[in-house]
Design a protein around this nucleic acid. Structure first.
Lengths: 113, 113
DNA sequence: TTAGCATTTGGAGTGGACTCGAAGTCAAGC
DNA sequence: GCTTGACTTCGAGTCCACTCCAAATGCTAA
């Protein structure tokens, strides 16, 4: 698949996908002989994963570290730790979000500022 | 209350509070004769409100508009609309967050990348 | 009354995450 | 053979939301 197809498939700009590869947020994408990216299933999987994580607010830094560890042997625990930590972060955001939504609901329902 | 006290009370830097006032995210804070901010209950309320909204991810822009309308007569509906729209945005974030957390839970539980 | 610390303003600087631009290559169609 | 449009790299630019700085003023305590 070309970058354009992947970009449309996951609704991420081609620039963003190139940027993600450049900074190591997704692993190197295979190229054709002419140097053009040719996304295979694994690469698509990474794009999809990064999109999902990013849109929930997982930091770029954490994802880079994860991808980095992914290519080293015996780092399963470390990788899992990253996931656990990010999971905890999301949990916090979740609580905050819930509280704020309830507050907004109340404000909207009783609207008199 | 001084800005320092408010800053400690709500765990927001004094710089951020001044910034919020400057851009209109909170209304003008009353001053003493010497020009120093003297937060009353209303001002504290705005600080607390903005902190809550911001930490859930409500955009600065929307809050500025809200505060702006707040000081004009007959804008109740418009203000409520802002709240309703922001509520919907948070709802989307919430869904995204939930989905991502579930995905992480699964990945963590079955850890074999 | 002088030191030392908080506060004021306005403007400049920062960090994160993209987003764009320039200059070049390549394949397909006319 | 030439144009057109998608692709490449790499560096620069942008946007948002702060965060910091400088210079001036004010309050408190030795």
């Amino acid at each position: 698949m070309t970058i354009k197809e992947v970009s449309e498939k996951y609704d991420l700009s081609a620039d963003t996908i190139r940027y993600y590869e450049r900074i190591g947020l997704i692993p190197h994408v295979p190229r054709k002989e002419n140097g053009i990216r040719d996304f295979d299933e694994a690469s698509c999987g990474w794009v999809e994963f990064s999109k999902c994580m990013r849109s929930a607010g997982v930091q770029v830094e954490a994802l880079i570290e994860y991808v980095d560890l992914f290519f080293q042997e015996g780092t399963e625990e470390a990788r899992k730790d990253i996931l656990v930590e990010q999971r905890a972060r999301l949990q916090e955001q979740y609580e905050q979000l819930k509280a704020t939504m309830e507050r907004l609901d109340y404000k909207i329902a009783h609207y008199v500022p």
